[in-house]
Amino acid sequence: METATTRRNTAADPTRPRALITGASAGLGREYAKQLALDGYDLVLAARGREALEACADELERHYGIVVQVQVVDLATQEGIDDLIDVIDRERIDVLVNNAGFGLKTSLMDTDPEQLIANDMVMLRAVTLLSRAAARHMRDRGRGGIVTVSSLAALGAYGVYSAVKSAALLVTEALSSELIDTPVTVTAVLPGFVKTEFHDRMRVRRAGPEWLWLDAEHVVSESLRDARRGRVVSVPSTRYKAIYAIGQVVPRGLVRSLSGGFGVRRRKRS
């Protein structure tokens, strides 16, 4: 496994805040990197592909005059998770963004066990262990923020994706309770449908009408604003806030029924 390298041998400015973002080479992760760079953060970008990370780092350094460090890791492995924990232990990280993730277009029973394990490693185990490591240092320093990208699917029963995102949401809420008497903020982001490469990589069609789909820029800007305000749960956009509110009161039996039907239709389309 390749290790982190500070780009162009330029040391990070100790007066600037630094953010670590997983899944940073595309989609929401890249947008988080862009907006935090605009706010003056130096960055540590983590993903599996060095080429995409380097291209992203080049663009951010050129446009925003910051220092970007790349960390090539596979969070589906314990080695990859440990590599990032080592970064958190060695270097000051002021903001952690747990964004890495991927979807499965097959049902629970039709998915290979190895894929199920990888799914759990990336979107739950990595979130739990990285958040724990970052929270301990942030608590000791008396400042910091953790943002975990969950999903509005956490309220449903769409198979493995809902299960792992729901667990990540609960971990985030539990951690926020542990840190309630500290200045450290912990925020779970529950976006709905977002226009990124996520569905293209799954090779499935986008579901629902166009008005349901949000721009990544809007999702990231609203979630960062909520995180700075100390909100534990961020649901970007008014339309999805309404869906979230309804989801709190709908009987679970109805949720399971609606989720099951949606999942079947989606698999048929894909």
Rank of each mutant, 00 (worst) to 15 (best):
S162T: 03
I180V: 15
D58H: 13
D140E: 15
T187S: 01
P191K: 07
A47P: 03
V186C: 00
I246C: 15
I117M: 11
L254T: 11
E217Q: 10
N9S: 14
V68Y: 02
S107D: 05
T111R: 03
L60S: 07
I88M: 06
L175F: 09
H218K: 14
E54Q: 14
A154W: 00
A11S: 14
R7S: 09
G208H: 05
L155Y: 04
E61Y: 08
D110V: 01
A26I: 01
R62Y: 07
V147R: 06
P113V: 14
A168R: 03
H137A: 03
E51P: 02
I88T: 06
G192L: 01
L224S: 04
V147P: 08
Y32A: 11
S270K: 13
T3Q: 14
E79T: 14
D181G: 05
R231C: 06
Y158T: 14
F198A: 07
L20S: 12
H218E: 15
R139S: 00
L224M: 10
I146A: 00
L190R: 03
D13V: 01
N99W: 11
M123H: 03
A55G: 02
R48F: 02
V219M: 08
R239Q: 10
V233H: 00
L116D: 01
R16Q: 11
T187K: 06
R132P: 03
Y64K: 08
E217D: 14
L152F: 04
E210H: 11
M138N: 07
A118I: 00
M123Q: 15
I66P: 07
R256L: 09
V68G: 12
T148M: 00
D226I: 07
V220I: 05
S270Q: 11
Q248F: 01
A188K: 10
E91L: 11
L169E: 13
L179M: 10
L84C: 09
S166H: 12
V235N: 02
L75F: 05
K165M: 02
K105Q: 08
I146V: 04
Y41I: 09
Y64N: 08
T3K: 15
L175I: 04
D42F: 05
Y32Q: 04
Q69P: 07
T185N: 09
T128S: 10
S162G: 14
A245R: 14
T111H: 09
V122K: 07
R205V: 06
R136W: 04
L45E: 07
A52V: 02
P209L: 03
E54T: 13
L130A: 04
S223L: 06
S223D: 03
Q69V: 15
R7Y: 12
F102D: 00
Y158R: 13
D215V: 02
I93G: 09
Q71F: 06
T172F: 07
S223H: 05
A135F: 00
S176A: 15
S131G: 02
